[in-house]
Design a protein around this nucleic acid. Sequence first.
DNA 1: ACAAAATTCCACATCAAAATAGAAATTAAA
DNA 2: TTTAATTTCTATTTTGATGTGGAATTTTGT
Lengths: 138, 138
Amino acid sequence: MRLSKTSEYALRIFSFMINDDKQVFSAKYLVNNLNIPEKYLRNLLTKLTKFNLIKSIKGRDGGFVFAKNADKITLADIVDAVEGMDKYEKCILGFDYCDESRPCALHHRWHPIKQQILDFLNNTTVADLRDKEGNLRF
Amino acid sequence: MRLSKTSEYALRIFSFMINDDKQVFSAKYLVNNLNIPEKYLRNLLTKLTKFNLIKSIKGRDGGFVFAKNADKITLADIVDAVEGMDKYEKCILGFDYCDESRPCALHHRWHPIKQQILDFLNNTTVADLRDKEGNLRF
DNA sequence: ACAAAATTCCACATCAAAATAGAAATTAAA
DNA sequence: TTTAATTTCTATTTTGATGTGGAATTTTGT
């Protein structure tokens, strides 16, 4: 697929957080553990905070925590905050009007696959990112 | 999904050509019928020619024709020529190494869907774009 | 109160995709 | 042979995503 790089980063942040024992994650700690440019990561954390996906704790010993329970944060929430979900819902040929009654040449073949992608993003939560078999590497 | 805009354009060119009676398609004719910036479309046609997906006929009354039979041109061929297929084959979290033996946190859930996308692109041909029910609009 | 550790804000730099511009080269019809 | 209709080439501009830099602000521990 082709999520934006920023969406990749965002998902990796959540994937890391759900699989680490810490309760509060300082930006510095995330920088040290994720392979994401420092400044870009900090900006991204601020953005995710504004969308109420994580909460920031200021001051000494501060950092970031989940803003709500991990099973209430979907991948679609994250992607939507970072780059918008619109692109993934649109016609594959880029037409404005494409739907069941006025389908593009690919609509009938593509639609069921697109639906699976959207279901995947909408129904997978951060809690689902928890690794059960200990084979994660960052 | 999120093909690049250029891939969208390219697919629309083929979709239009397979559904139009003409044999030779001048750039001007395509410009008039597809909603794509003129200069950009012309450059794109040249590119597709270099990848041997269409052939150009120069000079007066020239234009473009399919370089091979429509059922021998896959969507993946087109996307690959225009932007490369690599992106669509990579790990959804952007890791280099992600596979069955060292999966990322999303690998098992995402892999079957990714496979469907790739099958769709690899197995759908330009011939499949032919509209049977006459409900195409451009 | 002070200093340390953190987030936040504003501005700028880089890069690749997308879009544009103009001139050159090719061909075939008349 | 002329001319018109075409493709082709090289270069530049614009735009949005990605990435950097530095100072300001907030908060906590001591």
